[in-house]
Design a protein around this nucleic acid. Structure first.
Lengths: 346, 346
DNA sequence: ATGAAAGCGCTAACAG
DNA sequence: CTGTTAGCGCTTTCAT
């Protein structure tokens, strides 16, 4: 259709405003130290010509890109079945937009893409990266760390060395609150169906459960995988091992819903016979399960926003304040609070 | 931490390989017409130095960016409650990656962002755009069309003038298939709960329903909004207006689930008394509803992939083949087939 | 406060 | 087939 009309350049604006390119550049970039009268003149020229700076040319000299990469590893997982992902992106997008940064999305499907992503990041095309990697053994975070790009992780990374900057929900605290609620309800045989334990979120939730249930009967802990089917399997096993169970804290809502089904099928009433609590507050399932699920909510969008903010603020802004209370080696993580949402299941 | 180590340039590689910059450039861009021996030498130098082309410098001269924008308008809508969005992005990402293109994500939250997006696209930062706009009266598509960037729309746009390139599911055909199935089941009082009629998908599904139900009792059509709550409301109204309804085709799964609840509550059995069919095959709800939902599936990921492919292939590849059967004015849309997935509800 | 000039790293004619 | 030479559009000293 329309040939890409040649866009006006700085030169054109300068000519039109009767000043030099340098002056136009100054005005476009804030207008510091330029006479008001000229600023005005340049502004008008920009307006009239519909001038938009050429980002490539600018980047070439400034070495900045005003763009950050968001890398999401292995999206086959839960990422594509729940709104997590979308909410996170929304939070990130809002924050980036507010700072005039672009969002470059990098999705990876296994090893094959690792090299590509690493190369891209190392290639200096973006000013930073926000990375989500769900699995503990994922080599990608390591590669990225090696790419020398400022990075903020989503979810606590399984790191030994260095102090990665990350943002996470208070999985452990949220789990504690859930279990305490169950205790307050007078339940004594409180079980836990774990998530996939190769993810820190699952580990942390298990730890939170253990914090409250000090010397719990180990049979009350069943390992699962965050899926509804996994929840069903786990609940069956649980019922077999401990028919007297009177409460279950599931690692997420999907698992909880699976458990709910098995419980009903076994003739038990929820919450009368067995109270159930989930995690995530995934509205679509938590609100519409039978009975509606009591669960631990995390503010996903806020998490995304915070990650972006941390990244843009620069590597030195975190845990390195003037009055540094933070001895070397402390982890630079930000933990977001969770809240218990009471519905009918507990 | 680490200062951005100065990245090696073409110059450096050239020096190391003992050739000119031009030769290195040729090799890096395919190596056509360069002696094998030199190609080899350059390749090694690139390898050893860890050279990565500076995209900004390249774009500056080629005017290409190997990047496409994905703009998703008004994500407060359903976009953030179902996996649609994520699947679409995955399809797009795969295709773009295969062609070494980057994905720049532009999310908009209302009018305020329109100008920003328009400016960005008009700014010539990307080679094309894939745009999703759900609402008929959304001004964004118009702005984008005006930006002069090659664009492919996701979902049939509500266009009068021009022939926008778009990809859509066969909403109308899918609806027809669903309703025909209901007819084949021997149902005679087949109702339709529509989606939000300011979206073409809802309109098309309604049209599909009408295609089969020629002179249907108008009271069997209830307008709704694609939400579970809307489905409940609509189903209540329907039951009141037509207590003899024996089947309902809901505009999507969420709506269908809402209807399911009301039906159960009213003492009707599904599918014995009333058969129900949804649309989308949103696994999380369709598979786990009670009873599991018979529904029309669309291949969302494929839709994304196709959009990207169309865009990369260039504006002239579509409906403009040598043997042009397509008179001027024909719409350049690609419609993807849907499939009826039978579960228990119909 | 403003302009002149020198590149940023790369590709694309054009010679040779 | 390979090297030389111009810029692409912008920022940034450095003078003025």
């Amino acid at each position: 259709m329309t040939e890409t009309a040649p866009r006006p350049t700085l030169e054109a604006v300068a000519a039109r405003a009767g000043v030099s390119r340098a002056t136009v550049s100054r005005v476009v970039n804030g207008g510091e130290g330029v006479r008001e009268i000229l600023v005005e003149r340049v502004r008008r020229a920009v307006e009239e010509l519909g001038y938009v700076p050429n980002q490539a040319a600018r980047s070439l000299v400034t070495k900045r890109h005003d763009a950050v990469a968001v890398v999401i590893a292995e999206p086959e997982t839960r990422v594509f079945t729940d709104p997590f992902f979308a909410l996170q992106l929304r939070g990130i997008s809002k924050e980036l937009t507010a700072h005039d940064n672009q969002l470059v999305l990098l999705l990876t499907e296994g090893r094959a893409d690792h090299a590509r992503v690493a190369r891209y990041l190392a290639g200096g095309h973006v000013d930073g990266a926000l990375v989500f990697s769900l699995h503990l053994d994922d080599p990608l975070p390591g590669l990225i760390q090696g790419a020398g790009v400022p990075t903020v992780f989503g979810g606590r990374p399984d790191w030994k060395d260095g102090t990665p900057v990350y943002v996470d929900s208070d999985n452990r605290g949220g789990a504690r609150e859930a279990v305490r609620h169950l205790v307050a309800l007078g339940r004594t045989r409180i079980a836990h169906i774990t998530g996939a334990l190769d993810q820190t979120s699952a580990v942390d939730r298990l730890d939170g459960y253990r914090d409250v249930m000090r010397d719990v009967d180990p049979r009350l802990i069943v390992e699962s995988d965050f899926t509804p089917a996994g929840g069903e399997r786990a609940m069956r096993e649980l019922l077999e091992r401990c028919p007297d169970v009177d409460a279950v804290f599931a690692a997420n809502d999907l698992t909880a819903v699976g458990a709910l089904g098995v419980l009903r099928e076994s003739g038990r009433r929820v919450p009368e016979d067995v109270a159930v609590i989930g995690f995530d507050d995934m509205l679509l399932v938590a609100e519409r399960s039978d009975p509606p699920l009591t669960t631990v909510r995390q503010d996903i969008e806020d998490m995304g926003r915070l990650m972006a903010r941390l990244l843009l603020r620069g590597p030195d802004s975190l845990g390195r304040d003037r009055n540094d209370e933070n001895p070397a080696g402390a982890s630079a993580g930000v933990i977001l609070p969770t809240t218990l949402v009471r519905r009918a299941s507990a």
